[in-house]
């Protein structure tokens, strides 16, 4: 249902971590390793985010776009669905779903502006529109996505630590560089971000968490994953992954036809 996470298609589609990390057969054949598969998804999440800054859409639209992007690659291969085209198309579709439509020609314009030198990122309006339909199919027409942002604000209010809002919000943004949104209910991701934020900012939320009656093991696991992620990648929040890390992987994908 549209407003109840527990009856939503999003909830029914949550996956086990192993299924999310599985490299599609076609990509494995091209020599793409699980770690490289993850790198492309991180890189493309940045790509979507940067493109979104240009066309000025809200965080929620970006989050939905990245969720679509990650969901697609639990079903389709990067060899068949070029991530460099899927990424902007996810943003295009998400902008429609979230009622703040961005025109395809505008996306094409900004992609050219951003990646002008790299031919492999350049696509025409027609390419995006064709991919939009393929995405709808790949997503099995399930378009409603829930995000941690709303529960985050409610929970921070409830815990009386709204001064952590900005920090925790930033953490939630960063979780979209990972596949957490495909695996855990959004409010659990929000809780993990609050857990990290309160630990780093020396806020004692122990008793508040105890009263929540949620499985703290899951909250702690998600928190560990997030901290691990920061530790492993040490990504420049503005630039994303360095080119020498990502180019060799993308070069394994078939060239644009």
């Amino acid at each position: 249902m549209a407003a109840n996470f527990w009856t939503s298609s999003h909830c029914k589609q949550l996956l086990d971590p192993e299924d999310v990390e599985l490299v599609p057969a076609a990509d494995r054949e091209r020599g793409i390793m699980p770690e490289e598969f993850r790198l492309v998804k991180i890189h493309m999440s940045f790509h979507i985010w940067r493109l979104a800054q240009q066309v000025k859409v809200r965080q929620r639209v970006i989050a939905t776009a990245v969720t679509y992007f990650r969901r697609v690659y639990t079903r389709k291969s990067m060899s068949e669905y070029d991530p460099r085209l899927v990424a902007p198309t996810c943003l295009y579709l998400a902008s429609k779903v979230e009622e703040s439509t961005v025109q395809a020609r505008l996306l094409v314009f900004y992609i050219k502006k951003m990646c002008g030198s790299d031919d492999k990122y350049r696509f025409e309006i027609k390419d995006i529109l064709e991919m939009e339909m393929k995405l709808l199919e790949a997503l099995d027409y399930y378009l409603v996505v829930f995000h941690p942002y709303r529960p985050l604000l409610q929970l921070l209010q409830d815990a009386g630590i709204t001064d952590l809002t900005q920090f925790a919000w930033g953490l939630v943004n960063d979780t979209y560089k990972m596949d957490l949104i495909l695996i855990y209910p959004p409010y659990m991701i929000a809780l993990a971000c609050i857990y990290i934020a309160s630990a780093l900012k020396d806020k004692d939320t122990t008793s508040w968490f105890e009263e929540l009656r949620v499985d703290m093991n899951i909250v702690k696991n998600i928190s560990m994953e997030i901290l691990d992620f920061y530790d492993t990648y040490k990504i420049d929040p503005q630039r994303g992954l360095p080119d020498d890390k990502i180019s060799p992987v993308l070069n394994k994908l078939p060239a644009k036809s």
Partner: peptide, 18 residues
Amino acid sequence: GDGVSPTAIREIMLLREI
């Protein structure tokens, strides 16, 4: 150049959930 109509998107997105 506008792709799938927003009307169709709304119908799909809502009716797929309810």
